[in-house]
Amino acid sequence: MIVRIQRGKGERFDDYDIEVNAGMTLLELLFRIQENIDQTLAFRYSCRGAICGSCAILANRRPVLACKTTLSRVTNLKIDDHVTLPSSAKLPDGGILLEPIPKLPVIRDLVVDWEPFFNEYRKLEPVLKNSDHPEKEHLLGKDKSRELEKYTNCILCALCWSACPVVSEVDGYPGPAALAKLFRFYLDPREPKSTKRLSVADNEAGWWACDFYSNCKKVCPKGVPPNVAIGRARKLLEDEEVEK
């Protein structure tokens, strides 16, 4: 199979003709190339179990985690199953095209600079702001912990950032992951309501910038729905149920 990989800071593509089997993951494929053909190839990796968020890449123009995506899934993915992003590179016939995720500067090959993504995350101060430290734990209903879990499952891999059209359209947009994280802290009953989480992003470049493409939810490897968080935040602000 021909595997075409974007190299350097995007100045060229290299083709590797390599023996594969359909059940292999993209990460295994990348290691096979690095260890056997081309040691200059750079890509990020760590847990290889879809929990550390290191290995987000574009495979045939779709944002995926390399560790949990098999070659057969890349070649068989139907367009409406997933999100396909524009790219100028040509897909090799029957092969696979690998590129760094877009909307972040490329450092080398498939490695991007995460700083813009984490900067937006940090700006929203995602930390539980509570001053009460009771002797025991705060009591929390099962329903509440389940609702929170939907958002705490985020692994900050930046796939949603790369798939979101608004990220490149609206300057200063925090992006889906950061907004979902903000909503997670709004939902947390352990934080006093006076913290006013929702108003932090109550502006044109915040909650209101989202156009509900819902690419974020479609590409999320952990099933987190930032689009739902954003919709709920907007409804709450519209209804003036909160913080006004």
């Binding site: 509570n130 430290h133 025991k136 734990e137 009591l139 099962k142 912990s145 879990e149 947390d188 352990r190």
Partner: peptide, 18 residues
């Protein structure tokens, strides 16, 4: 308990305790 107070969402029993 410190981690709970710092924000970790531990799973709960039917009384709401960890």
């Amino acid at each position: 308990l410190e981690l709970e107070h710092w924000g970790t969402v531990f799973s709960r029993d039917h009384e709401g305790k960890i």
